[in-house]
Design a protein around this nucleic acid. Structure first.
Length: 1099
RNA sequence: GCCGGUGUGGCGAAAUGGCAGACGCAAGGGACUUAAAAUCCCUUGGCCAGGAUUGGCCGUGUGGGUUCGAGUCCCACCACCGGCACCA
C-alpha cells in the first residue's frame, strides 16, 4: 500500500459529523421556520424566519433515482450518478439556489422475499439490514442529502399513500371528451344499465384501476404473473425464468388512456433524444384505418353478414388484399372454421398455445398457419379471399386480425410465398427499376379502382386519404390510431409488496364485486406469515393469512400485492413532505419545489432558454440593416423581485416598468453576433450577450438602491447600482410616460470619457460597493421555476418502465388536482454504465466487481468521488481503472501540500502510530499551514490562473462536464505549486471551486485557512460562488498560428489588438513562412483576428 | 431489420469550423534517499532526417464532398454499444 497522501481518514468523518450536527443540507419548505443559526437562513437573510414561497430563493430540485437496497451493498455504479447530482447540488447552493436533494429506498422487491422463503427471516428484517448498509455506504461518501426527508417505500407511513394513490386511480375514469381523469361519479351510465349491479359493472369497467380476466405472463419459477415490460425474450427479466401465457383475474391500470398525452408531452421536457425515442417506441403510435370485411356465407341472427374488422396502416393497398389472417386465439375462429379444416385448425391452435413465447421468438422466423376454410369479401372489389390463422398475427394488437397485402408487406409476402397465395401489385415504386414485389415504401397507386373510387395515379399519402374517405362514406371503415402500449398489469402474487386497499363482496344474487377500503382505514398492512410461499392451490402468499383475508363482515381482502414499480412512481412527491401524516404530500411545498403554476397576475421572467433566444431576436430587430438604431432598447419587464425591493427600500412603484438597455452596450453584443458592424466595439470591456440574458436576474440583487437628486432640474431619480465582473450597471428610472428603467453601463477599468455613456456620476468605489453588498440582503433572482424536478439522474435501465409509469401516475394526480405540473421530471440525464477494469460489465462471475468500501478505505471518499467524475462524460459507458483513482488521489495530495506544512504532516503521521484510534481525531490540530501562504495581494499571473479556473469550472458545471472541470482544477494546482508565495485571496476561491467535487478536503482546508489568518470560517456550503472577471483573462500578447494552404508553418507573438492588416503583414514576413512562399503566388490571405492567419498560395 | 448513440495515442479522454491529443493513467529517464516507498523534474501519436537546437511527412473508423481551412458540416459505407423487434 502506498503512503497516505493526506489524512482523509480523519478529515472525512469529522466533516460528515459536522454536517449532520449542523443540518447543513436541510431544505426548508415554505412556511417552515429556519433556525436562526442555520447558514442557509443567514446567507439569504431568512434566519429565524418562516418565509413564504415567494420569499425563498429559487428552488432547485435535484433528484437521484433511489436505489433498491440489495444484499450485495452499493456498487460503483450507484455513486456515479449520486456524485454528479451532489456536485451540482453543492454548486447550486453556492450560487444562491434553494436546493432540495433527497435520498430514500425503493425497498419492496423479490430478493428479500425469496430470502424469506428460504430462511423464514421476515423480509422486513432483511430489508432493514440492507437499508442500514446502503445508508452507511452512501453517508460515507459525503453526499449533501437532506436526510430529514429520507423515505422508505416499505414503511407503512409511506405505502399508506401508495395505496391512497391507487384509490385515486380506482375512483377515477378517463373522460375521452376532456382527455383527462375525472372522478368516477361523473361517469354517465347508459340507459340500458337499469339495475344497480349493471351500473356497478359499467363503472368498474371504466375505472383507471380495473379488474380483467385475461391472458397474462405467468412465471412458474417466481410463482407470480409479470407485466409485459418484465418479460424479456420469453423469460422473466428478473432471474431469466421461462414464462407462459395463462388467463387470470388481474388488476390493471388504464395507462393506454394516457398514450397520446404521454407521447405529446415528451416535447415539453428535456430528456435525451434516445430516451424520448425509447418511450415513443414503447407507446408505438400508428395512424391508419379499421376496415370491416364481410365474411362470405356467415350471417348474424338479424341477417346482416358477420364482419371481420382489421387494422391497417396502409388502407391505400386495400385493392391488393388477397387473403386475411386472424390471430390463432381470435374469438371468431371457432365460428368460421369449416368442418374440413376443423382438425387442422385445432391442432395448430394447440401447438401455438403450447409454444412459450421464448420459442415463438427464438425459433426460425419461418411462417406457419392454416386455412380456416372460410372466405371474406374484399369491400373494395368484392373479391372472395381466404381467411387463415397464423401466429404472426397477434391478438393483442389492433383488432387481432389483418388483411394481407403480400404485394407490399414483407411478412405477408413471405407467408403468401410459402402457402402459394396470390400476390398482386397495387403500388408502383417511384424508381421504375425497383421490384414492386415486397415494396413497402410510398409510391403511386395502381390497379386500385372500382366503379365508385379510383386511387390509380395517386401518391401513397393521397391514396390513403381518398380511400379512407370512401370507406367512411360507405360505413365500411374509419380512420383510427393504434398504440402498442398495453394497459399496465398491476397485480403480483407476492408477499413483500403493498397490499391492495380492496375488499371483495357478494351482492344478493351472489355476484362477486370489489370495493375500496375507506381512506381512514389505510394503510392496509400485510399480515404476519410463517411461510411466504404461494398456497399449494396457486393462491398468493397473503391468502395463507385467513384471519387477515376474511373480514367479520363476510368480505374478503384482495390477496394480490402491487408491483415494485408502485412505490417508485411517486417518491419524489413524498420527499417534499416526507413526514406529513395526513396527506401524501404538502400542497404548498409541492407547488414551490415542483415549480407549478402560481396564481394568475404573478409576473415571471421567461425560462432562461427561451429568454436567451428572445434577447437575440430583440437585438437583431433593433439593429436591422438600414435602420437607425434607437438609443434605448427595451428588453424585459422589471422582475417582481426587483420591484418589491425598490418598493421596500425607497417606496417607489416600478412593477410595470420595462428595462431598457443603452444602445452602446448593446452594439457590442450585436457585433459579436456577426451582424454588419457599424462601429468597432469600444474597448474590450463590455457587456456580453450572456450578461444581457442574466441582467434581470442580476439587477434583482443590486449593490445599492438610492434616490438621488440631480441639480439642474432638481428632479428626483431612482438609481440602482450593480457591479459584476468589471461592468458597473447604473439603472435610472425614467418617470412619466416612458415608465422605463434605463440601464446604462460604466466600465470599471480603462474607463475613459467615451466609454461612460451617461453623464450620471458614479463616484462609488469598489470598496463602498462591497460594503454595500454585505449590508444589503440580496433578493432572490427572479427566474421562472422549472416545472417539475429540475434534474433527475439515473440509469438507462429505467428508460421505459419506471419513467413511463411515474409520468402516468403524475398525470392522473395532475388531472385530479393533487399536483401542479403535468410532468414530473423536467430534465433527465442517464449516467453511463461503469464496466469492469477488463472492459466487461461488472459481474460476480467475472470476478471484476469493484467494492466501493475498498476504494474508500484506501483512497477516501473525495478521491472516489473525483475519480468517478474524472473518468469521462457522465452519460458515456466507461471502464473502471483503479490506477485512475490513484491519479486523482495524488492530485488531492498535491492540493493538500499546497496548503499544509510537510514537516507538520510528518509529525502527525508519527503521532498517529503512538495514539490510540479513539484519540486520533484531535491529531489534526498538529497541522500547520504552508509557509508560502500569505495574506498579500496576488500577482496578475496568479489572479489570471484563478479566474481562468473559475470560468472553466463554472461553465463546465453548468454543462455537466465534470471531467473537464476537474482537469481545470488540476491545471490550476499544477501551476500554483510553482509559485513562491500563495496568496490567500487566490487559494480561498480555489477551495470554493474544489468544494463540490471534494467537499471534505475543501472544508478542512477552508477552515484552517481562515483560522490561520485569524478569521472565523464562514459556511463553505453557503458562501457565494466566485465570479470570474473577464478583464483579468485578457491577454496583451497572443500567439497567432500562421498557416500556408492550411498547414501550420509558424507562430507569431503579437499584441492582442493588432489590426488585421498588420497581422497579415507580419504573417507574410514570418521567417518560417518564407520558404513556402518562394516561387509561389499569394492568392489570398485569410486573417481571423485574434485567432489565425492562413496564406493561400499557388505556383 | 428498425431507432438512438459512439468510433481520436499503449489506456481513460480534450478540442464555439481555426495550433489535434488539454487533463489523467501507463511507460521511459533523472533528482532526493544507505535503499525502497512517497515526492519533484524531464520525455512520450507514428514515420523519416540530423551531432544538436530542430526540420519534414503522415495522422481523429473507411470513401467521397463543401471550405482558405474539417475530429467538427454534408453524402455514402463499415464496426461497436444500447433499445425495439412478426405491432399489420
Amino acid at each position: 500500500m502506498a503512503r497516505r497522501q493526506y489524512p482523509f481518514h480523519l478529515i472525512e468523518p469529522k466533516w460528515q459529523a459536522r454536517w449532520e450536527a449542523e443540518q447543513t443540507f436541510r431544505a426548508f419548505n415554505p412556511g417552515e421556520t429556519i433556525p436562526a443559526e442555520h447558514p442557509f437562513g443567514q446567507r439569504h437573510g431568512l434566519a429565524g424566519r418562516a418565509p413564504r414561497a415567494d420569499e425563498l430563493p429559487p428552488k432547485y430540485y435535484i433528484l437521484d433515482m433511489f436505489p433498491y437496497p440489495s444484499g450485495a451493498g452499493l456498487h460503483v455504479g450507484h455513486p456515479e450518478g449520486y456524485t454528479a447530482t451532489d456536485i451540482l447540488a453543492r454548486y447550486r447552493r453556492a450560487r444562491g439556489w434553494h436546493v432540495l436533494h433527497p435520498m430514500g429506498w425503493d425497498a419492496f422487491g423479490l430478493p428479500a422475499e425469496q430470502f424469506a422463503i428460504k430462511t423464514g427471516q421476515h423480509p422486513r428484517v432483511t430489508t432493514e439490514q440492507n437499508i442500514a448498509t446502503f445508508r452507511r455506504q452512501i453517508k460515507s461518501l459525503g453526499f449533501s442529502y437532506d436526510w430529514s426527508r429520507e423515505v422508505d417505500t416499505t414503511d407503512p407511513g409511506y405505502f399508506k399513500w401508495t395505496q391512497w394513490i391507487f384509490l385515486q386511480l380506482y375512483h377515477a375514469w378517463f373522460n375521452p371528451a376532456t382527455r383527462r381523469a375525472e372522478p368516477i361519479s361523473t361517469l354517465p351510465s347508459p340507459p340500458e344499465c337499469t339495475t344497480e349491479a349493471q351500473r356497478r359493472a359499467w363503472r368498474d369497467a371504466h375505472r383507471l384501476a380495473y379488474v380483467s380476466e385475461q391472458p397474462v405472463w405467468w412465471c412458474e419459477a417466481l410463482g407470480t404473473v409479470l407485466a409485459n415490460e418484465e418479460v424479456v425474450d420469453g423469460r422473466s427479466e428478473v432471474g431469466g425464468f421461462p414464462v407462459v401465457r395463462r388467463p387470470m383475474r388481474q388488476w390493471m391500470l388504464r395507462i393506454t388512456a394516457y398514450a397520446e398525452r404521454l407521447l405529446q408531452d415528451l416535447d415539453t421536457i428535456e430528456w435525451s433524444d434516445s430516451l424520448k425515442e425509447m418511450q415513443r417506441h414503447w407507446i408505438g403510435r400508428s395512424e391508419g384505418a379499421e376496415v370491416d370485411f364481410a365474411l362470405a356465407d356467415f350471417r348474424e341472427a338479424d341477417g346482416r353478414p358477420v364482419t371481420l374488422r382489421v387494422f391497417t396502416t396502409r388502407p391505400d393497398t386495400l385493392f391488393g388484399a388477397t387473403y386475411m389472417v386472424l390471430a390463432p386465439e381470435h374469438p371468431l375462429v371457432d365460428r368460421i372454421t369449416s368442418a374440413a379444416q376443423r382438425a387442422a385448425v385445432a391442432a395448430y391452435r394447440a401447438a401455438v398455445a403450447r409454444k412459450s413465447d421464448l420459442e415463438r421468438t427464438e425459433l426460425a422466423r419461418e411462417k406457419t398457419g392454416v386455412f380456416t376454410g372460410a372466405h371474406a369479401v374484399n369491400p373494395v372489389n368484392g373479391a372472395r379471399i381466404p381467411v387463415w390463422i397464423a401466429d404472426y398475427v397477434l391478438l393483442s394488437y389492433g383488432t387481432g386480425a389483418i388483411m394481407a397485402v403480400p404485394g407490399h408487406d414483407t411478412r405477408d409476402l413471405e407467408f403468401a410465398e410459402k402457402f402459394h397465395l396470390p400476390v398482386v401489385q397495387v403500388v408502383q415504386p417511384p424508381d421504375p427499376a425497383t421490384d414492386w414485389r415486397g415494396f413497402v415504401g410510398d409510391g403511386t397507386s395502381v390497379n386500385s379502382a372500382n366503379a365508385e373510387v379510383s386511387l390509380n395515379g395517386l401518391p401513397t399519402p393521397e391514396a390513403r386519404q381518398r380511400i379512407i374517405a370512401w370507406l367512411e362514406a360507405r360505413g365500411l371503415g374509419r380512420r383510427t390510431v393504434n398504440y402498442k402500449l398495453r394497459d399496465w398489469l398491476f397485480s403480483r402474487q407476492r408477499y413483500w409488496g403493498e397490499p391492495f386497499p380492496i375488499v371483495w363482496k357478494r351482492d344478493p344474487h351472489g355476484n362477486l364485486y370489489h370495493e375500496a377500503v375507506p381512506e381512514h382505514c389505510l394503510p392496509v398492512l400485510p399480515p404476519e406469515l410463517e411461510d411466504y410461499k404461494p398456497t399449494p392451490d396457486g393462491q398468493p402468499p397473503l391468502a395463507r393469512a385467513r384471519e387477515w383475508v376474511e373480514l367479520k363482515s363476510g368480505a374478503r381482502r384482495e390477496t394480490n400485492t402491487m408491483p415494485q414499480w408502485a412505490g417508485s412512481c411517486w417518491y419524489y412527491l413524498r420527499y417534499l413532505a416526507a413526514r406529513l401524516p395526513n396527506r401524501f404530500t404538502d400542497k404548498e411545498a409541492e407547488r414551490y419545489w415542483m415549480g407549478g403554476e402560481r396564481p394568475p397576475g404573478h409576473f415571471r421572467l421567461h425560462r432562461p432558454e427561451d429568454w436567451a433566444r428572445e434577447v437575440d431576436q430583440l437585438i437583431h430587430r433593433a439593429f436591422a440593416p438600414g435602420k437607425r438604431p434607437p438609443y434605448l432598447v427595451e428588453f424585459a419587464r422589471v422582475s417582481d423581485a426587483l420591484a418589491a425591493l425598490i418598493r421596500e427600500r425607497v417606496g417607489l412603484e416600478v412593477a410595470d416598468f420595462r428595462l431598457a438597455l443603452d444602445v452602446y452596450a448593446v452594439r457590442h453584443i450585436f457585433n459579436q453576433h456577426g451582424a454588419p458592424a457599424r462601429e468597432e466595439p469600444r474597448g474590450n470591456l463590455a457587456v456580453t450577450r450572456e450578461d444581457l440574458v442574466r441582467l434581470p436576474e442580476l439587477l434583482a440583487e443590486p449593490d445599492a438602491v438610492t434616490l438621488a437628486t440631480s441639480r439642474p432640474r432638481a428632479q428626483t431619480r431612482l438609481v440602482i447600482q450593480k457591479q459584476t465582473h468589471g461592468v458597473v450597471y447604473l439603472v435610472e428610472a425614467l418617470r412619466g410616460r416612458a415608465r422605463q428603467l434605463q440601464v446604462l453601463t460604466l466600465y470599471k477599468r480603462k474607463a475613459t470619457a467615451r466609454d461612460v455613456t451617461a453623464k450620471a456620476p458614479l463616484s462609488t468605489t469598489s470598496e463602498t460597493l462591497r460594503r454595500f453588498r454585505s449590508t444589503n440582503t440580496p433578493a432572490a433572482p427572479a427566474v421562472k421555476p422549472t416545472p417539475g424536478v429540475d434534474l433527475y439522474v439515473g440509469g438507462t435501465e429505467h428508460a421505459v418502465l419506471h419513467l413511463l409509469y411515474a409520468r402516468f401516475w403524475h398525470k392522473v394526480l395532475y388531472d385530479l388536482g393533487h399536483v401542479s405540473t403535468p410532468e414530473p421530471f423536467f430534465k433527465l440525464v442517464n449516467q453511463g454504465l461503469i464496466l469492469g477494469e477488463d472492459g466487461q460489465k461488472m459481474s460476480k462471475s467475472r470476478g471484476n466487481v469493484v467494492n466501493p468500501d475498498d476504494i474508500l478505505r484506501e483512497y477516501g471518499a473525495d478521491a472516489f468521488r473525483l475519480y468517478e467524475m474524472f473518468m469521462g462524460p457522465l452519460e458515456m459507458v466507461k471502464p473502471w481503472s483503479t490506477m485512475g483513482v490513484e491519479g486523482v488521489y495524488r492530485f488531492l495530495g498535491r492540493v493538500w501540500r499546497l496548503f499544509v506544512d510537510e514537516q507538520a504532516e510528518t509529525e502527525l503521521e508519527q503521532a498517529e502510530t503512538t495514539t490510540p484510534e479513539s484519540g486520533r481525531q484531535g491529531l489534526l490540530d498538529l497541522l500547520r499551514l504552508h509557509a508560502a501562504l500569505r495574506d498579500e495581494p496576488p500577482a496578475p499571473a496568479q489572479l489570471k490562473a484563478l479566474h481562468a479556473c473559475i470560468k472553466k469550472v463554472t461553465e463546465d458545471l453548468e454543462g455537466l462536464r465534470f471531467n473537464t472541470a476537474i482537469a481545470a482544477l488540476m491545471i490550476f494546482v499544477n501551476e500554483a505549486q510553482t509559485w513562491p508565495t500563495r496568496p490567500v485571496a487566490v487559494l480561498r476561491p480555489f477551495l470554493q471551486l474544489l468544494a463540490p467535487f471534494a467537499p471534505h478536503l475543501a472544508e478542512e482546508l477552508w477552515e484552517r485557512l481562515h483560522r490561520a489568518f485569524g478569521q472565523s470560517p464562514p459556511s463553505l456550503t453557503y458562501t457565494p460562488w466566485p465570479e470570474f472577471d473577464p478583464a483579468l483573462l485578457v491577454e496583451d500578447q497572443i500567439e497567432i498560428p500562421v498557416q500556408v494552404n492550411g498547414k501550420l508553418r509558424d507562430k507569431l507573438r503579437v499584441p492582442a489588438d493588432l489590426a488585421p492588416a498588420e497581422l497579415e503583414r507580419a504573417a507574410l514576413a514570418a521567417p518560417r513562412v518564407q520558404p513556402f512562399l518562394a516561387g509561389q503566388t499569394v492568392k489570398k490571405v485569410i486573417v481571423v483576428p485574434r485567432k489565425l492567419v492562413n496564406i493561400v498560395v499557388a505556383p
